[in-house]
Amino acid sequence: MGLVGLSKLREAAGPGRAFGCFAVQDLGCMEAILAAAQDLELPTALCIGQSSWTSLAPLVSACRTAASKAQVPVAVHFNHGKSLGSVLAAIDAGCTSVMYDGSGLDLEQNIRNTRECVLVAHARAVEIEGEIGPLGTFTLDEARGFAERTVVDWLAVSVFRDWSFDEHFIKELAAIGPGLVLHGASKLEPEERARAIRAGVVKINAHSEIERAMASGLEYAANHARAFDSDSLRHACDCVRQTVSDLMRSYALL
């Protein structure tokens, strides 16, 4: 299917299952993520953010080119934009979807800023995700008001380590309307994450897991090689590929 938007990934994942949005740090990381997706024949999103090691426009261009050649549906998503300018830059670079993150602001300011970004994204026919904040810090009515007033396509929430898992609350959030996105899912137990997916989580972002896989791979290679070289990078990418494969299986409840 190649390059698509997030809604197409949701369709491809199927009901009761989620798809992953995986942090792309560089081209090797991108290739590892796509290789895992094609091995498993599962949809995926390549996630580009402020922490990527390569600058925005070249990385988006490379991701778009690679995604267009993939045999599975692939989106190119911009993560955690903190301003309208960053969202615009991601749209101009060619991201198929963008995220504005105003979760650090008070709710009213978050709604105003997110709505402004939504208007710009929708005018360019780009899907947009907005984040209300960590689970346990907002009410269901506040989440419903956020979604209705911003008209986001995707509603993001995040997990605090001390959040007491509440499957019913997740079901209520999923029923609001926009696709429900989970950030910080690595803080959940695997069984809780599966329950969250069954309750309606559609998209799961994976960032820390990718960073840990890269770091672990590089450390192993450094300890078993005479010098840091291309073999070290290949080993790190192999670690990313395995991590992404394991996560994809869990998101698809395989």
Rank of each mutant, 00 (worst) to 15 (best):
M1R: 08
L6P: 06
A12V: 00
A13F: 00
F19H: 05
C29P: 06
L34I: 11
L34Q: 08
L40Y: 00
L40S: 05
L40F: 00
P43Q: 08
S51I: 09
W53N: 13
T54G: 05
L56K: 05
A62S: 11
A66V: 01
A67F: 00
K69V: 08
F78G: 15
N79Q: 12
K82C: 10
S83L: 05
S86F: 05
V87L: 04
A90E: 08
T96D: 08
M99R: 07
Y100Q: 12
D101Q: 07
L107D: 11
L107G: 10
Q109L: 09
N110K: 09
N110M: 03
I111Y: 07
R115V: 02
E116R: 14
C117G: 14
V118T: 07
A121G: 07
A121S: 09
H122I: 00
A123P: 01
A125K: 15
V126T: 06
V126A: 02
E131M: 02
G133T: 06
L135M: 03
G136C: 02
T139I: 01
D141P: 01
G145T: 13
T150V: 02
V152P: 03
A156F: 03
S158H: 02
F160I: 03
D162A: 15
H168T: 15
F169W: 03
F169H: 11
K171M: 11
L173S: 10
A174R: 04
A175D: 10
I176Q: 09
G177D: 13
G177L: 11
L180I: 06
L182V: 04
H183W: 06
G184D: 07
G184T: 04
S186T: 10
P190D: 10
I197H: 06
I197D: 13
R198C: 06
R198E: 11
K203Q: 04
A206N: 13
A206R: 11
H207D: 15
S208Q: 11
E209G: 14
E209W: 01
A213N: 10
M214H: 06
S216G: 15
A221L: 04
A221F: 02
A221V: 05
D229G: 13
S232L: 03
R234Y: 06
A236V: 09
V240F: 04
V240G: 11
Q242V: 11
T243P: 03
T243C: 14
V244N: 09
D246T: 12
L247Y: 12
Y251W: 03
A252Q: 14
L254C: 10
